[in-house]
Amino acid sequence: MTADVWLPFPADEVPGLPENLTYHFWDGAPEYPTDPAECAFYVVPYMKGASVAMRPLRTMQSVRAVQTLSAGTDHVQPGLQGLHPGISLCNARGVHEASTAELALALTLASLRGIPGFVEGQRQERWRSGFYPALADKSVLIIGYGSIGAAIEDRLAPFECARVVRVARSARETARGQVHPIDALPELLPEADVVILSTPLTEDTKGLAGAGFLARMKDGALLVNVSRGPVVDTKALLAELESGRITAALDVTDPEPLPAGHPLWHAPGCLISPHVGGSTSAFLPRAKRLLAAQLTRFAAAEPLENVVLTTE
């Protein structure tokens, strides 16, 4: 007896899949490939939005595992409500760390060194020389010190930062040093030149970077968000940007996609990329290796990795 698996890639394009499962290709199309009630392992289509991700879930009566291809699972969790207990929700830990950390560093460097102004100057044929901030000798605060936060610190290492400070939900020690608890932010924020958000979106982190948080950032500090848009209070951020007190580099926004005419597009000191932290050439090979490994465990009735929660 085999189990149905829904994949967002054709099965013959994913090396190493176990043969004792039945694979169906679904990437979010209006028509389902087979009856969702028979699906045992559901791999959520990547970057198709919450409505697509959750659409088949309500009728997946046999599902035992839901696998996202994103680091975050906030777009899927509401769809698990009301389903039977024992469903494992797994994220894509190991897939996006390198790409997201690359972008976090790129946004930081581009913002500090004035790259957006140079691009505009090139269009206008203007030579914008002068002195610009460097990352060297800066204090960097990483909020959300999971695998992505650690990967960001890996890439900061050669840049001669004065200090890298780590914050997570709770305190712990790592090989690199102390990770501070999130309730230490009021004391840590005023000392940071660069604040990088890499935390998942949860009820606790929604609106984390609100008016009080932003007010505690030092004058001239840079906020970099590679987590989720709602982690930042957009109205509060706009007020700070328009005052010129801080700057920001955002790969994610709230709302998202950012609509035409939204004031964030033209806010002073704000660099925006269109949520491309994980969507790079590194994604497909790593995602396929993850799926082959997870499904091999599933077929052998072994515990899955990257389990974020189990329904009760």
Rank of each mutant, 00 (worst) to 15 (best):
A157D: 14
A29R: 02
A106P: 05
A239L: 08
P30I: 08
I143E: 06
I115G: 05
E203F: 04
V179Q: 10
L284I: 11
G149M: 05
R126H: 05
A101L: 03
A260W: 00
A110E: 03
P85N: 12
G277C: 04
G277R: 01
F298I: 02
G49E: 01
L295P: 00
H180Y: 13
L17T: 01
L264Q: 03
D193I: 01
V231G: 10
G72D: 15
V140D: 07
L112D: 13
E191N: 04
A211E: 15
G121R: 01
G244Y: 13
A40H: 15
G86M: 09
T100A: 02
P18K: 06
T247N: 05
V76N: 08
G146S: 03
V140H: 07
L309G: 00
T174Y: 06
A292F: 01
E19K: 11
L112R: 12
S51C: 02
A171K: 11
N20C: 05
L103F: 10
D35Y: 03
V179H: 09
G79H: 14
L135D: 10
Q122S: 07
P33L: 15
L156P: 04
A50H: 05
A293H: 12
Q294R: 07
A236L: 01
L291S: 08
A110T: 02
V179A: 05
A106W: 14
L83P: 00
Y42N: 08
V43F: 08
L57S: 11
Q122W: 00
F131R: 10
K288E: 02
E187R: 14
T202N: 09
A37P: 15
V308P: 00
G121I: 02
A209Y: 00
A150C: 03
L80P: 14
V231H: 11
I142D: 00
P268Q: 12
Y32C: 11
A29C: 04
Q81G: 06
A104S: 13
V66K: 13
P186S: 03
G220S: 10
D74V: 02
P259Q: 04
A293G: 12
V165P: 00
G16N: 08
A236P: 05
S139G: 01
R176G: 12
S147D: 13
V52H: 06
V226W: 03
E31F: 06
R113C: 12
P116N: 15
C270L: 10
L309H: 01
L103M: 06
H84D: 07
V252D: 12
